[in-house]
Write a protein that binds this DNA or RNA. Structure first.
Lengths: 343, 343
DNA sequence: CTCAGAAATTTACGCGCGAAAAATTTTCGT
DNA sequence: ACGAAAATTTTTCGCGCGTAAATTTCTGAG
C-alpha cells in the first residue's frame, strides 16, 4: 500500500487512470459509473488508501451528508441511549452524524443550533429542551434547516415529531396500579423542564377522573436537570410533613422516582407490593438504571428502538422530499408496561 | 439587521468597507487588525450577522480549530459528565469540539479515529476503550494526530496522559474500611474492559499485603459494558454459593456496586455500617448515581474538574508546542473519599 | 516637515473538490 | 453496419476562504 502518498483527488484519479470528476462521481454514488471504471477505482483504492477531503467535499455542495443530533441533556442515560441508536442508523445510511448536548442550558441550545447551521446539515434530529427552549430561535432554525423533532414536541415547530405517547404511558401505569391496589397519587416537579411532564400530569388527571377517582397531584419544587436530587428532596419533605395521600405513588419520570426511592430508603419506608411494604412506587421511561433501583422500578417503557428508527426514517424521507413536508406529522409510540418489584 | 443577505466574506468585507483578507485576519485574531478597522468590522457584524463558511475556513488551513473528544461509552454518566466539562473548556478557548463515543465497540473506535483524521483536528482528547482497543490503530493515530489520553492510559501512546490515580483511590477506600471494620474483599470483573480495573486490583492486593492482611479477590464473569447487570448477576451467584469471604466488599467501580447493591436488596441482605447490617459496600468513581443507591454508596470520587481542566490544558500546550512534547507526561489526580451510608 | 521602518492592508494565487456544460463512448434497433 | 439516443466521461468554471508577497499607511525620531 501507499507507494507514493496521494494528496488529492487529482492524483488519485491519475493513478487510477481516470479523470478526476469521474472519481468524484464514484464517491458520490459508486453505481453511477461504469462497472469497469468502478473496478479500476476500487482497485486503486486498495493500493492507495485515499479519502476525499471532507472540507473540500462539503464546501461547494448544496446538500451535505451531515446530520445533526441534538439532545437536551446527554448525562441522562435515556438520551445517551437514544442518541446512540440514532447515530448508528445515520452511519448505516451513509450520513455523518454529529452529536450535541445542550446540557440543560437554553443558551447552549441556541448556540448549538447556530453552529449547526454552518455545518449545512442535510437534516437535523432535535430533541429540544422544551419549555426552556428559546422558542423563537428554535422555530427560526427549523424554518431554515430540515428538522425532525423527537422525544419532546413543540407544537408546529419542525417538519415532524416522533416520540412516545404520554397518554399511553400514564394510562397503562394508572390502570395497572388501580387494578392491583390503592389508587396512585402523582409525583412531579411543579415547573418541569420538559413538556412531556405536563402531558403526563394532564393524562393522569384525565384518566383518574374517567375512572371516577380523585386525582391527587404532588408538585415539588426544584429547577434544572438534577431530577434525582429534586425527587429526593421533594420526597423527604413530603414524608416529613403530611406523607403521601395514598400508599401508591406514580412518578412523572424514572429519575424523580430514583430520588424518591432513595428518600424512602433513607427514612425506612419499605417500598414494594408485598406485605409489610408502606408504599408502592411506579414511574415512566424505563430509564436504563430503573432495573437496579431498590426495589427495582415498575415503569412504562419507551420503545427506544421504534422511536429512533422512525425518527431517522422520517428524517430520511424529509431529506428525500427536499426538506419540506406538505403537512406536519406526529408519530407517537405506545408504552410497554414493565412490572418489577416496586409496585 | 440583514438589509441584504451576506453570502460570503467578499460581500461582508464590501459592506464593512475593507478588503476581504483583512476581514479574514480579523476572524483569525480580532486583535491583529487596527482598532479602527476592528470597530468597523464589528459594527458591520452587528447589522449583517455573517459567519465564515466553516468548510471553506478549514479547507485550506494547515491547523484547524477542531478538537476531537472521544470516550469509550457515552451512556455511562461518568463519561457524559467528563465529556461535558471538556466540551465547555474547548468552547471557552475558541475551539470547536466534536464528541464521539465508541459505544464500547473497538471497531467503532477505529472508525472514529479514522473519520477524525479527516477533520484535521488541532488535537484530540482520547479516552480509549483500553484493553479492547485495537492498539496498533490507536498508536498509529496518536503518531499522526496530537493526542492527549485521559481516564484510561495506554503505555507510551499519545503525547500525554491525564487521569486519576488508581492507587490513591484504592488506598483511601481500603484504609478507611480496615480502620472502621472488617477488612474488605475485592469485587471485580475477571476480564475488565478497562485498564483502570487492573490497576485497582493490583493496588488492592498490594495495599492489603502492606497492611499484613490477606487479599481476597472475587472475579466475576461477564463481557461488555453492562456493568450493573454483570455486577448484579455476579453478586447473586456469590450470595447463592459461598457468600462473601468478609462482611465488607470493595467494588472495582460504582457501576458494579450498583448491580451488587441491587442483588443484595433482592436477597434481603442489609447493607450499611449500622447494627443489623450484613454487609458493608464501598466502591470507586463517585458515579453520578451513587448518591441515590440504597443505601447511598461510600466511594472514592474522581476529581472530574481537575482531570478535565488539566487534560484540556495539556492539549492546549501540546497544540502550542506544535503537536509534540519532548517527553510523555502522566498526570494523576488523587481521589477524594466520599463517606455515605453503605460503609 | 521628512523619511525610514514597522504595521496594516491589499494583491494575487491556490486549496480540493462539486456541478453544469461539452465531448466522447456505448448501446441498440434496424 | 449505421446513426441517433443514452450513458458516461471530460472540460470548464467557481465555491469561500487562507496565506505569502506586494503595497500602502502609520509611527516616531531627527
Amino acid at each position: 500500500m501507499a507507494e507514493t502518498r496521494i494528496r488529492n483527488m487529482e492524483e488519485f484519479a491519475a493513478v487510477a487512470g481516470i479523470s478526476r470528476p469521474t472519481v468524484s462521481k464514484y464517491f458520490h454514488d459508486p453505481s453511477s459509473v461504469r462497472p469497469t471504471t468502478r473496478a479500476r477505482i476500487e482497485a486503486a483504492l486498495e493500493r492507495y488508501d485515499y479519502r476525499p477531503n471532507i472540507f473540500a467535499v462539503n464546501q461547494n455542495r448544496k446538500l451535505t451528508k451531515n446530520v445533526g443530533i441534538v439532545v437536551p441533556y446527554l448525562a441522562d442515560p435515556f438520551f445517551a441511549e437514544i442518541a446512540r441508536k440514532l447515530e448508528e442508523r445515520c452511519i448505516a445510511a451513509g450520513f455523518r452524524p454529529t452529536l450535541f448536548s445542550a446540557h440543560g442550558r437554553p443558551e447552549l441550545e441556541v448556540e448549538i443550533l447556530d453552529s449547526l447551521r454552518s455545518l449545512k446539515p442535510a437534516g437535523v434530529l432535535l430533541a429540544p429542551l422544551g419549555r426552556a427552549s428559546v422558542r423563537r430561535e428554535v422555530e427560526q432554525f427549523c424554518a431554515d434547516v430540515p428538522t425532525v423533532l423527537f422525544d419532546s414536541n413543540i407544537d408546529g415547530v419542525g417538519e415532524a415529531f416522533v416520540g412516545s405517547d404520554n397518554f399511553s404511558f400514564v394510562s397503562q401505569t394508572v390502570e395497572y396500579l388501580t387494578r392491583s391496589g390503592e389508587e396512585p397519587c402523582f409525583f412531579e416537579m411543579r415547573t418541569p423542564a420538559n413538556p412531556n411532564a405536563n402531558k403526563r400530569r394532564i393524562a393522569y388527571v384525565q384518566i383518574m377522573e374517567r375512572l371516577g377517582l380523585t386525582p391527587r397531584v404532588i408538585s415539588i419544587e426544584g429547577e434544572g436537570w438534577a431530577f434525582e436530587e429534586i425527587g429526593r428532596q421533594g420526597a423527604l419533605r413530603v414524608i416529613e410533613t403530611d406523607g403521601f395521600p395514598t400508599d401508591t405513588v406514580l412518578c412523572s419520570n424514572d429519575r424523580l422516582a430514583i430520588g424518591l426511592l432513595s428518600a424512602c430508603y433513607e427514612r425506612g419506608l419499605r417500598v414494594g407490593r408485598g406485605e409489610g411494604s408502606a408504599l408502592r412506587v411506579a414511574s415512566h421511561d424505563d430509564h436504563p438504571f430503573s432495573r437496579f433501583t431498590c426495589p427495582s422500578l415498575t415503569t412504562a417503557a419507551h420503545d427506544y428502538d421504534s422511536v429512533a428508527t422512525r425518527a431517522f426514517e422520517t428524517l430520511g424521507a424529509l431529506i428525500e422530499a427536499g426538506g419540506r413536508f406538505d403537512r406536519r406529522t406526529e408519530t407517537l409510540f405506545a408504552a410497554r408496561l414493565v412490572l418489577r418489584a416496586s409496585a
